[in-house]
């Protein structure tokens, strides 16, 4: 016969274990039943995000699977960053790369930049920033259309010196009261275009290797 204290410890432990098992089971069942739907939703959300800057009809490959990882100082990368390569019937169509502008007003501005194979910009979106609300945050599409002023631009349109904000004698508008933020974004996009210009052969080379391996 166990002393009473041990009996109560054992009883309570078993009770706790029972509840742990039940709650784990409940979570496990929910997880099992939602797993595939969550995966689909995640992919759909990513596709929607990429579709913002590269319309779905401009490529025909599985964009999310056609990914390479870059760690380029020119693009402001600090870790391996995914870059998506789009193609039409196996031919290079576009790339979507992420660039970070470290010289924002407060902290890094992360951009998603879509560049067509011919070097024109299909679109730019800000995915993360910490700029001042009401001033610098107009780089978001939700706040202003400014970010769309990059659509269709390329390395030679405008010319080299046009790749700056108007205050620095460039072609791009700054915002009332905020110069640093748009300046940082313009510079980062310009650098991304330069990077693409120098490296597009390597970027699209990935397309051939995957083609072969498939």
């Amino acid at each position: 016969m166990l002393p009473e204290i041990s009996r109560s410890v054992i009883k309570n432990s078993l009770l706790l274990a029972l509840f742990a098992a039940v709650t784990v089971a409940v979570v496990a069942i929910t997880q099992q039943s939602t797993e595939s739907r969550i995966a689909t939703e995640e992919r759909a959300a990513q596709i929607r995000a990429l579709g913002e800057i590269l319309p779905a009809h401009s490529y025909d490959n599985a964009l999310l699977d056609s990914v390479i990882y870059l760690n380029e100082s020119l693009l402001g990368h600090r870790t391996d960053t995914p870059t998506y390569i789009a193609s039409v019937e196996g031919q290079p169509a576009a790339v979507i790369l992420q660039a970070n502008a470290a010289d924002g007003y407060s902290g890094t501005i992360s951009l998603l930049i879509g560049i067509m194979a011919d070097g024109t910009l299909s679109g730019v979106r800000v995915i993360h920033h910490k700029e001042t609300p009401g001033l610098g945050d107009r780089i978001e599409l939700a706040k202003s259309q400014w970010i769309k002023s990059f659509d269709g631009k390329s390395l030679n349109n405008p010319e080299e010196r046009g790749w700056a904000v108007k205050k620095d004698q460039g072609d791009f508008d700054q915002f009332a009261g905020a110069t640093i933020t748009p300046r940082a974004v313009v510079t980062a996009v310009h650098k991304a275009l330069q990077y693409f210009d120098q490296n597009h052969a390597q970027l699209f080379a990935h397309l051939k290797t995957t083609e072969v391996s498939q």
Binding site: V26, T30, T34, E41
Partner: peptide
Amino acid sequence: ALTTCIELLMQAFTY
């Protein structure tokens, strides 16, 4: 456990 379930459900239906 209930919160985790709600979280998973929200992830699945209101991502």
